[in-house]
Computed example of a mutant assay.
Amino acid sequence: MSRIGIDARLISQTGVGSYTRSLLEYLEHLINPDDVLYVFVQSVKKSPYHPNRKNIQLVEADYPWHSIAEQTGFLQKLVTYRLDLMHFTYFSFPMLYPASFIITIHDLIPLFFSTGKASTKHPLMYRAKHIAYRLLMRVATARAYRIIVPSQTVKNDIERYYGRKVSSKVEVTYEGVPSRLMHAQSSSHIKKVFKKPFFIYVGNFYPHKNIEMLVRAFRDVLKDYDLALIGPDDYFSQHIRSLIRSLNMDQRVIMLVNSSDEDLSFLYSHAQALIHPSLSEGFGLPLLEASYFKCPILASNIPIIQEILGDYFIPFDPLSKDSITTAINRFVHKPEKKFLPLNILQEKFSFEKMSYQTYEIYKKTLFKGH
């Protein structure tokens, strides 16, 4: 019998949360009945995941990520469980954890965007946190038995920053479209929000997502079209709201926060296209989600998007406002149905396949320890 732990403290968040929820959904069908899986969540009561098997147990672990409590209290809790293997699903983990572990590194974006503009913290506090991030990453990449990443692009970044020895431990497991979104019934009530045809952006509003550039570029798009920005309600979304007001774009740019899967189903199905202007990504789930709903994609011509979509998108230079505007206006005059074909999407990108690959990594790691 093996005792396996999964860090699911971010399970209610976007991004990492979606990854963790999907992983657990499929692991339920894979895990050996003789093994025990401990799922560490911030709140058992509020967790969106509740296991259907007796050998999967939720464990309360109310230790915020990026905190001293994570490095002390969470560490002590993990040690008491005497795990044969721990899977940290995010880079922030107790770096003195003494036992065998694997870690998922979703991207190296904090290394690329380390100016402090991507933080609400005081510059000195941000600098301290950035130093802590670099230290955590050094420890994680050196000590993890295996490192899971969502793309070859991230693996290449890891090799560039940490060398081939670390890169040799990296396993690429492509993600997919969450099953709950695929099965969601399209919500028609959101239709009343729109009076004109609309484009959408889906994701968070961190500076590297380049939404400020998108909003400025959309000023010169034909007035017959609106733009819907769909993401979380936080400090960064408030900054974008202020920008929209300052540009007098309130009537053309609509912000939809904390949208449900039913809302997303409607939005992907009825949008003119998804616009994805990011400067950097570890993966890019909205690209797959848009493809699933046959929503055309206009996106940055950066390596990760080329890796995921190949030639199945309309590219633009994310650093050029004119390039973004031109791509949108050209699409308006001559729409192109460019999105990843369903057969490629199903064959290459799947959370079910990702979970199987992850479980195989578990088994290899456990076998190594016996």
Rank of each mutant, 00 (worst) to 15 (best):
80 T>C: 14
57 Q>N: 09
306 Q>Y: 07
52 N>C: 11
156 N>K: 15
134 R>Y: 06
155 K>V: 02
178 P>Y: 04
224 D>A: 15
180 R>M: 06
157 D>H: 10
184 A>Y: 05
119 S>F: 04
358 T>H: 12
254 I>P: 10
76 Q>D: 14
362 Y>T: 02
158 I>M: 11
227 L>Q: 05
32 N>E: 08
224 D>F: 01
142 A>H: 10
232 P>V: 06
334 K>P: 01
260 S>A: 05
71 Q>M: 01
206 Y>H: 14
90 Y>C: 12
317 D>I: 02
196 K>H: 09
163 G>D: 01
34 D>H: 14
103 I>Q: 13
260 S>C: 10
344 I>D: 13
165 K>N: 15
90 Y>S: 13
212 E>Y: 08
281 E>Q: 08
302 I>L: 14
6 I>W: 02
315 P>K: 05
318 P>M: 07
150 P>H: 05
203 G>M: 03
267 L>E: 03
83 L>T: 07
300 S>W: 00
141 T>K: 05
227 L>M: 07
316 F>P: 03
47 S>G: 10
283 F>A: 14
205 F>A: 08
101 F>I: 03
262 E>T: 03
231 G>H: 00
265 S>N: 06
254 I>W: 02
315 P>L: 03
151 S>M: 02
212 E>G: 14
72 T>G: 11
288 L>Y: 03
205 F>T: 02
69 A>F: 03
246 S>K: 12
348 K>E: 10
286 P>R: 04
220 D>F: 09
60 E>V: 05
110 P>Q: 05
111 L>K: 12
146 R>I: 04
16 V>N: 13
133 Y>V: 05
283 F>P: 06
114 S>G: 12
39 V>M: 08
84 D>L: 04
263 D>S: 09
111 L>S: 10
130 H>K: 13
196 K>N: 06
110 P>I: 01
321 K>L: 15
338 K>A: 14
99 A>G: 11
353 K>Y: 00
333 H>K: 15
258 N>P: 00
47 S>P: 00
111 L>D: 10
155 K>T: 06
266 F>Q: 00
114 S>A: 15
284 G>V: 04
337 K>I: 01
343 N>V: 01
70 E>D: 13
199 F>C: 11
297 I>G: 10
332 V>C: 13
10 L>A: 15
123 P>A: 13
252 R>F: 04
107 D>F: 09
115 T>H: 13
100 S>D: 13
77 K>I: 00
56 I>M: 15
139 V>D: 12
62 D>N: 15
263 D>P: 03
62 D>P: 01
330 R>M: 10
59 V>E: 03
153 T>P: 08
245 R>F: 12
304 I>K: 06
159 E>W: 04
48 P>M: 04
6 I>G: 12
301 N>P: 04
318 P>C: 09
163 G>Y: 01
218 F>D: 05
176 G>L: 00
305 I>W: 02
344 I>S: 12
71 Q>H: 00
327 A>S: 14
297 I>Q: 07
219 R>Y: 00
123 P>S: 11
345 L>P: 04
272 Q>P: 03
179 S>N: 04
257 V>Y: 13
322 D>S: 14
156 N>L: 07
355 S>Y: 03
219 R>S: 12
13 Q>L: 11
304 I>E: 06
268 Y>F: 15
74 F>D: 07
83 L>C: 08
189 H>V: 08
